[in-house]
Design a protein around this nucleic acid. Structure first.
Lengths: 251, 251
DNA sequence: GGTATATTCAATGCCGCGGTTGAATAACGG
DNA sequence: CCGTTATTCAACCGCGGCATTGAATATACC
């Protein structure tokens, strides 16, 4: 019945296109505003900047460097984000420090990512690849909730740059930047010797952080069943699990 | 220490801008794809189309009419949404029926809206206005969870056009399109006489649906403590509460 | 097979975003 | 008060999104 019929699905009565006088304008205004907000998210550079800010507050120059942007360009993109209140800026002397305007922004970022991954084949592949599933070595990724229940009993390895580790990391984690691991594989042995547990879990920034992918094979030589934390530091923080600061166990 | 100092926050070691050879490209690709996905959301017309599709599947022509767009324009915007897998299309004879690609899309829409409302003063105002708080009359808005607990004991009034009511509505709701209410206020009395409860709750499409705002004062003349369901049908459905179809109690 | 209708495709023109560059502003240090 | 440095502003330009129009495609009815 539904398939074959060609009955016009509905008569073209005015429905709700009203004379477009009153409240219709309000709805249009709201949607325009909402679209501006969404548009602030809808640029690869800004998504990356937000991903970096999820690791902790940073200055413009640091963000530009980490994102591979020119300073002026980074500043402009940060300006767009600030105008839509996705980030906040505070001046500290000579530097301006940007930070996420709230944990809900991080959540939104991750919701966007998850929805996109569910609906785009390519993004799903990339997420699997970032999780190290294709790279060989190591066990399956670990959800934040799973890891939270095992906190004291595994060796937590933070693969992010030391600056981001210092700005906040999982409780008890040890810093071993992927860059250093690649340059001095023996650093892993030094770190592992001080610790007991045979189980290790590594993590990096977030869903599309590829630090883990390159590091995983190296880690797996010492910890055969090492797993990556799904969603990285970003997902951990977004789900409300505790974050530790300072406490220098830096590599 | 943090405030006064002018020590460069971090040395400009390469950090993670790596030689930009390998995985950096993968991350850039992922973010570009994610940005395309987000950009599909970031247009007022497409946000409106998605909001309409949240009420139920519709044809291109119906969507164009309800959104106040030309048919070609609506088709193009729907094409953008379809390419990013936010909506699906199925041909039924002469007509093409579009629908949301999943409930997670509806969720994403609402998450975006909530985050934006939290961070934009203007959007927060508009949301309050749509909820009828400024329009006078009636009680405070009702959360879906609250309403779910009172389902059999209140008169549920669906203010959306009959077509959308037919495509799905809250269990036991009665259809009283805002347009009809405005044209024949006595229709409310007819509907109320058949029912017992002194409490009534009305709802419309979603967060920025202004049907409720104009209808609320009229409703309040008969039901002094009438409230609007916060987030409308969209929020109800997104939170997983049951939806009823057909069962013609249409006004 | 021919006609009518719904939808999509293609082409055009315009506006605004985004990158780049260079100058202006704000703060620190002497 | 002047030089230095971080950041932002302003102006330029090019690309791509978006609206509009008209043609092409797909399907149904006769």
């Amino acid at each position: 019945m539904t398939a074959g019929g060609s009955v016009p699905p509905e008569t073209s009565r005015s429905e709700t296109t009203l004379p477009a006088g009153g409240p219709g304008g309000a709805e249009a205004g709201a949607l325009a505003e909402l679209a501006r907000f969404a548009r602030a998210l809808a640029h690869p550079h800004r998504l990356r900047l937000l991903g970096l800010l999820a690791q902790g507050p940073r200055t413009v120059e640091a963000l530009a460097g980490a994102a591979g942007l020119g300073v002026a360009s980074a500043s402009q993109h940060l300006g767009v984000l600030r105008r839509q209140r996705l980030v906040e800026a505070e001046r500290h002397g000579l530097y301006v420090e940007y930070r996420l305007a709230g944990d809900d922004i991080l959540n939104l970022w991750l919701e966007l990512q998850k929805a996109a991954a569910r609906h785009s084949r390519r993004l799903a592949e990339l997420a699997r690849e970032a999780a190290g599933l294709e790279a060989g070595g190591g066990g399956p990724p670990l959800e934040a909730a799973e890891l939270a229940g095992r906190l004291g009993r595994v060796l937590l390895i933070d693969l992010r740059p030391a600056v981001e580790f210092a700005a906040g990391h999982l409780p008890g984690a040890r810093s071993l930047p992927a860059e250093e691991l690649a340059a001095r594989p023996e650093a892993l042995e030094e770190l592992a010797r001080q610790e007991g547990p045979a189980q290790a879990v590594a993590y990096c920034r977030g869903p599309y952080c590829f630090l883990g992918r390159s590091a995983l094979p190296l880690l797996a030589r010492r910890f055969p069943r090492v797993g990556l934390l799904a969603g990285g530091f970003a997902a951990w923080k977004a789900e409300g699990y505790p974050v530790e600061r300072g406490a220098g166990t830096a590599g």
